[in-house]
Structure formats: structure tokens, C-alpha cells
Design a protein around this nucleic acid. Sequence first.
DNA 1: CACTTGCAAGTAAATGCTCACATACCGCCA
DNA 2: TGGCGGTATGTGAGCATTTACTTGCAAGTG
Lengths: 186, 186
Amino acid sequence: MSAKPRIERAALEVFAAHGVDGATTKLIAARAEVSEGAIYRHWKSKDELAIGLFMAAHKRLSDLIEAEAGAVHGVAAKAAALVKAYCTAADEDWTLFSFHLLQLHHFLPYYQDDGRDPVTLVEMIIKYAMMKMELPPGDPRVVAAMAIGVITQTAQNKAYGRLGDDALSAHAPLMTAAVLAVLKAR
Amino acid sequence: MSAKPRIERAALEVFAAHGVDGATTKLIAARAEVSEGAIYRHWKSKDELAIGLFMAAHKRLSDLIEAEAGAVHGVAAKAAALVKAYCTAADEDWTLFSFHLLQLHHFLPYYQDDGRDPVTLVEMIIKYAMMKMELPPGDPRVVAAMAIGVITQTAQNKAYGRLGDDALSAHAPLMTAAVLAVLKAR
DNA sequence: CACTTGCAAGTAAATGCTCACATACCGCCA
DNA sequence: TGGCGGTATGTGAGCATTTACTTGCAAGTG
């Protein structure tokens, strides 16, 4: 079996557990049952490996949000779509998702803001809904942050082991109601 | 002027910017305009320094939540108190607060759960309110996470520079309404 | 053969931390 | 008051270890 996917999995787990700076190439190699040199056959540096994994998660989540939210109309449906996007990403690869969640701030300097990150996407949805009077007025940046916070903090607490082993989607109905309530609250 | 407080400030800034593992003792010393050795006159290790700072922030926030929420009655007032506690902590020392916010997961293994962390405190408030039928039933762990997420994600986006330079408390009314909406939503 | 993938041993640089030494501070008693 | 000793504080060169990464070689593949 090829080493590359094994290294990716191992790196993901180690990065999620120890952070990018706390992770060592030795640990990653050991976990993948591969020599350290093997890593450098496929990536130029530890950081390139980390960035690649992070961007994959980032893109996956952004794509899901765009697809789910773009397919429906009305605030309630958009809220449900947002929750569904996060839950799908979390359920289909929890390690990748939690790595993205917990290490976000490490990579902020890297990703160019092409407006395709989750926060900006949600901001735009909210702005549009406010224009159409489907939502009461208010700073869209703050409203977006609060709505996303409902989901991400729940996911974080799950990552911290405070919510048991249920999939994130087990809490989707509750989160959907809460996101919608946040959007409408003022 | 004594070096200890200067080191604490410098460490806080460097930890917040680079993370605990990414921060070097050399950088901290340089920023504090102090020799590296001076750090070790006051702390046994870099980690001890980091843990000390983190715990100070952790305790401050927990104390504020306990005090503010303990002084009022009713769900609406408790929600306002929670927001006020976070805003006070953030406004009185933003560097300390954002360090605590962004590096939380690094210190999770350390703090013994004596039930005095912010999440547990909020969970207990919610449980009690549900018992008294002031809130609709639901998993208190998830409801607490969602309510806190409204505040922490807003703070995180501010830390990421997405909300301008206003104090966190500038958004307190909006956050209070949102937290209350989350608590009641189902 | 050409090319990719993997290994084991190694390298230079960096990191956290120490230690011998210097200086500032402070109570104490003549 | 002023000199004295003990302690707390700060220095910076230096140490052992760890780190990311490299390199020469071998085996698999087509």
C-alpha cells in the first residue's frame, strides 16, 4: 500500500492533537509506519503538508455551504442548509473537520480572501436577506459570526469530548433552530 | 522597573500571536527587553509560564460569570449577565482574553474539571432554568455550547480582524438578544 | 533501462534551559 | 548615618537535545 495516504491520515491526527508547531515529523512518520524521508518525497516541507490538508478541509466546507445554501430559498431553508453543510463535512471526515476547526487561526495568514471562506459566504447570505427584508437590519459581520458560532462551538465541545460520541448531525435540528433564532433576534 | 510584569506582557503577546509551541523563549525575552535567563528566575519552564497566564485568564472569566450571573434572576437577566462577563473580560485585557480564547485547546489536558470553567457554569444555569420551566427542555450541554458560541465566535472574528477595532462590548446588545434567542429556541 | 517510491543515517540550525558571575535591594546594628 | 551581609534579580555565553530536512542507496514498476 502506498505511503502517501497513510502519511496524510497520520499527519491529520497528529496535527489535530498537537497543533502544527507541536507536531513533529518523527511522530507523523512513526504513526504512518513510514520513514521520515518518505514524507519529503511527497511534500517539500512540514508546513506544505499542513497547508495542503487545511486547504482541502477549507475548500470542502466552503463548497458544501455554497452548494447547500445556493439550492434553497428563504432564511429558514438557508439556516438549515448551513447547518447541514457543517454536519456533512463533520460526519464524512471528523478528523479533517476538527483539524480545520481547531487550527484555523494558524492558517489565517495564508489563505487569500477570495470571498470563498465560510464566514464571508454566510455574511453575503445575510446581507442579501436583510436587503430583501427577510431579516431585521444589523451588522452582517456580527450576525454571521454569531450564527456560525452556534455550530462551531458545538463542534468544538464535541472535539473536547464534552458531547459524547454522537455524530455532529445528531444535533442538527437543535442547531438549525438556534441558528434561525440568532438570525431573527435583535 | 521589574522584569516580571514585562515578561508576562511580552509572553502573552507572543503566545497569542504564535501559539505556545510556536513561541520561543528568545522572542519573548527580546520583546520584554530582558535576557532569556530572566524568564527562568520567575518560572520553571516556558510551559509553566504559559499555564500561569492561561489559568489567570480562565479564573478571571469564570469568576466574572459566577458573579454576574449569580447576582440576577430569570433567564433574560442571566443571558445579559453572561454576555457582560465575557465583554468585561475582553475589554479589561484583550490580549489576555484572546490568548485564552485562541489557545484553549492547548490547555484542556491541564485544568482539572472542578466545574468552575465557563462551559460547565453555563450548563448548570441552563439545567436549573429548565427545571424551573423557564426554558424548553433539551440537552443542556448542546444548548450551553450554542449560547457560548454566539459570544466566542464573535470574539474570535474580532481577534481575526474581521470586526474592526471596536471593543467587544460594542456588540453586547446584539449578542445578548442572540444568546437569549438560542436559549429559547427549539 | 528510466523512473518513482521508500529507507537509514546524517547534518546544520534551533530550542529550552543552566550556570558562573554581576548588581540592586534591604534590614540590621554600631 | 553608614557600612555589612544576605538575598533576590538580571546577564549572556554556552550546553545537550531536538528539529526539519538531505542524501546516497536500494528495491519495485512498467
